[in-house]
């Protein structure tokens, strides 16, 4: 039973997460109170949403390093629009953020699809470009809380069934992506394209189009997160979420998404993001400098990759006729 649990990556990660939470709670009982746990989830919501988009991109053998810049640029634009036209309904602003994010994401997608530039190069470029554009549109100025409207700031905080709207948005996207991957043709295409691009072409799938779609979805989610981030921290400036893309990729890797493409689950990604969230939340409680968080995340990533590599190693070519794999 235990051996089987160790083989199921998602289950293993879930157990490790619970063990971590219990270990911290053993010394700091306050950590495990419902309020704190709810706080961890809410704090991690944006990371979860971004990691879902990133997972789709990585599944197709690409990577999107521009998510944090996309988020910051979109966040700045909607904040400025809100400051300039406070009467514009929130729905319009959310729609605007989704569209800007989608646009920025599809730029990545087009460059990868039509020009065939490696994704890491494309998104490293747009990471810098999008970040630079924030300075251009804002002149380096900040948009502060007092310039934003009440609705803009408070809507994600409204409690619904005990959880803030922000957390519900994350849950909603988790469900949508889960359904998308399991129950739609396009979702299946993401797994097939990353698993074996050549076979995917022969099965009538368009690899480039699928990758374009992945970047577009990742962009769309980044855009929406742009609004969520700015309203949560009640400020927009050039350096918002700088470097956050690494945390997003980390959540995917810890969650068992294979950088080689074709392997990954929604459950894994959510657990990977929550793991990072739990560590981040625990450090101030335990009294460790938040700067350690990076070192700890890094260690966890390496451990996760080692575990993945060991698991994938069992998948040999089966050259010997009578070799049988035990499941």
């Amino acid at each position: 039973m235990m051996a089987k649990a160790l083989k199921n990556r998602d289950l293993l990660l879930g157990l490790v997460l619970i063990a971590l939470v219990l270990a911290i709670a053993a010394r700091f009982p306050g950590y495990i109170t419902p309020t704190n746990l709810e706080g961890i989830f809410t704090d991690t919501s944006i990371l979860i949403i971004l990691a879902l988009g990133q997972m789709l991109v990585i599944l197709t053998r690409c990577i999107d390093l521009s998510v944090a810049s996309n988020l910051a640029l979109t966040g700045m634009i909607v904040a400025m629009v809100n400051a300039g036209a406070p009467d514009l309904p929130l729905a319009a602003l959310v729609l605007l953020s989704a569209l800007i994010g989608l646009g920025l994401g599809s730029i990545n997608g087009v460059l990868v699809w039509t020009l065939g530039i490696p994704p890491i190069v494309v998104t490293l470029g747009t990471l810098a470009v999008y970040r630079g554009v924030i300075f251009v549109v804002s002149d380096g100025e900040w948009v502060n809380a007092h310039e934003m409207s009440e609705v803009f700031l408070n809507t994600p905080r409204i409690l619904f069934l005990g959880l803030p709207i922000l957390a519900w948005v994350a849950i909603l996207f988790v469900l949508i992506v889960a359904v998308f991957l399991r129950w739609t043709r396009t979702g299946r295409a993401f797994l097939a394209v990353g698993g074996n691009p050549t076979a995917a072409v022969y099965a009538g799938l368009d690899v480039g189009r699928t990758q374009f779609l992945a970047f577009s979805i990742s962009g769309l989610l980044s855009g929406i997160c742009g609004y969520l981030w700015v309203s949560r921290y009640a400020v927009a400036y050039v350096d918002v979420a700088r470097g956050f893309e690494l945390e997003v990729v980390a959540a995917c890797v810890i969650g068992g998404v294979s950088i080689a493409g074709g392997i990954g689950t929604v459950t894994g990604v959510v657990l990977g993001a929550l793991f990072l969230g739990a560590v981040k939340n625990a450090l101030p409680v335990i009294g460790i400098s938040p700067f350690w968080q990076l070192a700890i995340s890094g260690t966890v990533i390496i451990v996760a990759v080692v575990i993945n590599a060991r698991q994938e190693k069992t998948a040999g070519k089966l050259i010997l006729r009578d070799s049988h794999r035990t499941h």
């Binding site: 739609t184 043709r185 076979a199 995917a200 099965a203």
Partner: peptide, 27 residues
Amino acid sequence: QGAVLPLPIFQNITLPSLGRLSRNGLL
């Protein structure tokens, strides 16, 4: 050129046939 190794067997078999296995966009 043939199989998508990490994908389940049944999903490999149905990969080119998904068009006729969907209704209202859901499989």
